[in-house]
Design a protein around this nucleic acid. Structure first.
Lengths: 321, 321
DNA sequence: TCCACGTCTGGGAGCGCTCCCAGAATCTGC
DNA sequence: GCAGATTCTGGGAGCGCTCCCAGACGTGGA
């Protein structure tokens, strides 16, 4: 014991004011000497905070989790959480057990939630918001719900890609877009459209894929059938671009000679593709960090926080365009 | 209220015997009616269990997390945890803050730990074992510590790969192995060696990589320089195989005509490689499930549990070999 | 000198459970 | 019928904290 009451110890640990320097030092020395660690469960039970936030992965993980994207976000979340005494609870959910999850999270077991939901019409963000639980969503929700979110600037990234292809002198520029029911798909498509139309180029060569290599291959084959003279394609995800490259190779098109290809994500796949893929880079780790920062700031009662944040994207030039 | 005391409610919730059917039903009805959820912090504080297990990702995440491997494990862990009232705490650590982590985990905040540590000489498993905390490690630790682990059968997987290449009539069979200081690297190398030597083929063409595409490329170039007549290569990870394929293409070797290539992992990369990669499949989700099952069984006091488990691997035939 | 006010401190209640103990109800066997 | 074992139940203590209240001390102005 440091010769002070437990109240004073509690004050020191929680960094409250009204503690003399003498007792603060004594407590700190005692903590170090005893190897004392506050009991998390007791803090939670006694206090009004849970000292934990949830990372909710919607849509049954399978799709989201395998994505290197998610790994980057997770890394960012953890980096930002370091030094906080906030625990990170990992939860996954499918549509069917959304109710259970909402009940659990709404029950005061966590102070806030980070929601990774790539599926646009997921009801989960809205359900969670209605419980009043502070939350930050990863990726813009499709509906205009006023849920705070953090996302990469997909629109401007796609715009960069389109402008780059135009600057290469390409004139028959196609896109393999993401699903229309995902904001990330819609935003990248919008950016591409804007790029082409502002250069006076027809933005009619659009095929949708579903962020799998197979769908990229199918889409590329359709494009080549529809417009054999296509000389550039913006693929809304590196993973789809891999499928597209396969088809282009199979049909004997040289890359970038005959067809220039730009991907999106700058995933590990991009640099090992044949040829290495020019792509739009998004900093996924920063995405995780920003989400966490936004949530913790809200929990700390800061105000004047931006409702949502768009993170810049940039073009990475490699051989494919 | 169901007209019974809180003690009885507690007994019902914890499924203890010595409760009459009448009061059990009453409690269940009240729970459903009130939407009651036990307070996790209070259960933990009052009880002797923490009702939580930690998923510890060693080696600062960067490497491990980006691995689709990890995503699969996580999916398995979560699947196995469904229906339990055990929370999953995610923790990451680098060598420097191992001490903090061990103190935290040893402090009764969790009932057990799942450790994902791909780096062979990581001291963390041993440190955690010494605290007496039940734990299961993902991947065989390099040192012969008696820590329970679950791993894919890397030895037999590599053996399968070697035998397949031999059955194709190849005679100059090389390998791009993983780091020698990782069990996964050592085991796959041993399996390959065993395959070649049992067929009377010299197992001398070995180059080590570090599970990056770049290292695969460098290693392949070295192999081609050292043995231009190489006609097959077993690459100990799909991700390295991508780099190897690039170099083979660049040097004008036909695959599998001139050089047959077998990878390991059956990751998403394998099927989209050019040409699609023959590879050794390991069921990573099953790995996560098995780890979790093993830990929960130990926590439940089951005995006669196998100290460690090896999960079967199998060969997936595609075009590259 | 007295009171008002700010700074610091200890004591106590209580968060929502689990565990233990004692007592009530019910069931055996002779 | 009664002692004894067995099944069930409620009451109370206490897990380790945080929060609130009251009191001790100091400082300055009227």
């Amino acid at each position: 014991m440091a010769g002070v009451s437990k109240s004073t110890v509690s004050r020191v640990i929680n960094g409250e004011r009204h503690v003399s320097a003498r007792s603060r030092d004594a407590v700190h020395r005692a903590i170090a000497g005893l190897g004392y660690r506050p009991n998390h469960a007791a803090q939670t039970l006694a206090g009004s905070r849970a000292n934990a936030i949830a990372l909710v992965v919607s849509e049954h993980g399978s799709r989201v989790l395998s994505d290197p994207f998610f790994a980057g976000v997770l890394r960012g979340v953890h980096a930002e959480l370091a030094g906080q005494r906030t625990q990170l609870l990992l939860m996954m959910t499918s549509q069917t057990d959304n109710g259970d999850l909402v009940a659990y999270l709404g029950g005061g077991h966590v102070d806030g939630a980070l929601v990774v939901s790539l599926h646009g019409e997921d009801p989960l963000p809205r359900m969670l918001r209605d419980t009043g639980l502070p939350l930050v969503v990863c990726g813009r929700p499709l509906a205009g719900d006023c849920v705070p979110f953090v996302d990469a600037d997909n629109f401007n990234g796609a715009l960069l890609a389109a402008r780059h292809l135009i600057s290469l002198g390409r004139t028959r520029i196609a896109t393999i877009a993401g699903p229309a029911d995902m904001a990330v798909g819609a935003d990248r498509l919008s950016g591409w459209r804007r790029g082409l139309s502002s250069a006076g180029i027809a933005a009619d060569l659009v095929v949708h894929g579903d962020f799998t290599p197979e769908s990229g291959a199918v889409a590329m084959a359709q494009l080549l059938d529809r417009a054999p003279d296509v000389d550039a394609v913006f693929v809304a995800a590196d993973i789809m671009a891999l499928g597209a490259l396969q088809v282009l190779h199979a049909r004997g098109r040289r890359i970038p000679g005959d067809v220039a290809v730009v991907g999106f994500d700058d995933s590990a796949l991009a640099s090992t593709a044949v040829p290495p893929l020019t792509t739009v880079r998004q900093d996924v780790e920063q995405l995780g960090r920003t989400m966490t920062w936004r949530l913790l700031a809200e929990l700390a009662g800061e105000d004047g926080l931006p409702p949502s944040v768009l993170l810049p994207t940039s073009l990475v030039l490699r051989s494919s365009a």
